[in-house]
């Protein structure tokens, strides 16, 4: 059988896996420091880095024609659009001339219960 490594530069997959595992450990330990910004960066920033590594090196997105990247990116952009269009109604509970009293109530009751739980 012919060898096709000539066409594809040999990637050291085990090394990539090693990096992914190290990143995973960082993302677990990050929140232990207790600082919200560090948690955000270690949890979600690292998730993006991991996803990027898997997409590029394991799924070989870096070797494929550019249009694959474009349509995958387009679907991701549409999801950002969905979030941007819906969040003002669902995420926020009040705005100019309106408020979502049922949602506010649920949040208040929930937080009151939580406060009680900590009190005991």
């Amino acid at each position: 059988m012919s060898h096709s490594e000539a066409a594809h530069p040999h990637t050291n997959y085990v090394k990539i896996w090693g990096i992914l595992v190290v990143l995973l450990i960082v993302s677990i330990l990050g929140p232990e420091l207790g600082h919200p910004v560090i948690t955000l960066v270690t949890a979600f920033g690292i998730a993006f880095v991991k996803a990027y590594l898997v997409a590029m090196k394991f799924m070989h997105l870096d070797r494929e024609p550019k249009f694959v990247m474009y349509f995958v990116a387009t679907t991701l952009a549409f999801m950002a659009l969905l979030f941007a269009g819906v969040a003002p109604d669902v995420m926020l509970h009040d705005g100019k001339n309106w408020d979502h009293s049922a949602a506010k109530q649920v949040v208040e009751t929930g937080q009151a219960l939580q406060g009680e739980g900590q009190g005991h």
């Binding site: 669902v90 995420m91 949040v107 937080q111 219960l113």
Partner: peptide, 13 residues
């Protein structure tokens, strides 16, 4: 995930 995220941010509890 988009639905979850907007609920999660709107509901600190």
């Amino acid at each position: 995930l988009a639905s979850y995220l907007m609920f999660r941010l709107g509901h600190p509890e």
